[in-house]
Computed example of a mutant assay.
Amino acid sequence: MARVTLQTIADQVGVSRMTVSNAFSRPDQLSPTLRDKILAVASELGYVGPDPAARALARGTTGAVGVLLTESLRYAFNDEVATTFLGAIAEELTPTGLGLTLLTATAHDDVVPARDVAMDGAMVYSCDPTSSAIDWLIRRRLPLVFIDQVPAAGIPSVNVDDRPGARAAAEHLVGLGHQRVAIITGGVRRADGLEPAGAVVSGSAANEGGESQVIDGYVAQQRILGWLDALTPAGIDPPVVRLAHCTPEDGYDGARLLLESDLRPTAVLCFSDAIAQGVVQAAYDLGLRVPEDLSVIGFDDSPLAARMRPALTTVRQDVLAKGRAAAAALTRAIAETRAGTEVTADHLLIPTELVVRESTAPPA
């Protein structure tokens, strides 16, 4: 079967090749009657439209933006906070015609996504700041937006106001009378860039001494600072479990390390609701009651928090607002870059709020 081209359709309709092209890419240039006729002939001949790659080359755009993740792509589909965040981005991008491409920071068979994938711009979402993938995006001079990263000069950024939210959670426990408070945090890495092997326990949140090779991510740093803002004045030096990942399974393992110790905490502050779910399950498996024997506080206020039994006390962040703000900042940066104007490098902080439910109570 002969290949159908724009010229094939033009010959059939009796118009120029440019007129057929306009029917697909610039419909405002044609009358509705003529455009409908061209599209009808194209459909009859089995023509679906101009080649996307050729059209992108001609326009100098790809129609796609990337989201760089340090975690595996499976995390993006399994974690409720991540899926809500990505869904908000996709919804915000829909009117612009831009598509979403998920990028891992890891190379596969000599393919480096941050270096090799065609895109008009990218969002860097809660990634290791030393990752070579971020360096590739910067070197490509792509419009960028940082989300849950250390704000950088000249790059728009969106962050959650983590420190005040964490402070409010710790103040809630101190106000209830807890003195034996522990922390389980996530998103850590080793100084050599390798993944920590399992849970890492340190004697305090300072992360000094033997655990100095383990580095908290930016969000974890902010939340630890917030927790300590309330715990330190109360004379509480919390033991800390540091996890590479934020799954309920990791939270469960981390909680067992704390709850089976000689000096069991009466309350645990968790980096995320997913970790908190694992902590609650570990407590039940050890015969402890929540909140009577152990108070648990999460972070995020994901749908999981309200589903849990008991319902989880947590810190709410507006993930939808964060996703929409990130997408809006990137589309603006892309437009400014194309226009040759300076990129608006605003730093937006999404507020947090403590949501008190049933998983916290005074110590027994």
Rank of each mutant, 00 (worst) to 15 (best):
A2M: 12
M18E: 13
R26K: 15
L30P: 00
T33Q: 14
R35Y: 03
A42Y: 05
E44R: 14
Y47I: 07
A54E: 12
T61I: 09
V65L: 07
G66H: 06
V67T: 02
L73M: 13
G87P: 01
T106D: 12
V112S: 13
S126F: 09
D128L: 00
P129K: 08
W136T: 00
R141H: 14
P143Y: 09
F146V: 07
V150A: 08
D162C: 08
A166G: 13
A166W: 06
L173G: 01
L173H: 01
G177H: 10
V188I: 12
R190F: 07
P196Y: 05
A197Y: 10
V201P: 00
S202Y: 02
A205Y: 07
E208N: 12
G210V: 13
I215D: 02
D216S: 13
D229K: 03
A230Q: 00
V241I: 14
P248T: 10
D250Q: 04
L257M: 14
E260K: 15
L263R: 15
F271K: 00
S272H: 04
I275S: 08
V279Q: 02
V280D: 00
Q281A: 08
A283H: 04
G287N: 07
L288P: 02
L288E: 06
E292L: 08
V296L: 05
D300H: 06
P303L: 10
V315K: 04
V319D: 02
A335W: 08
E358L: 10
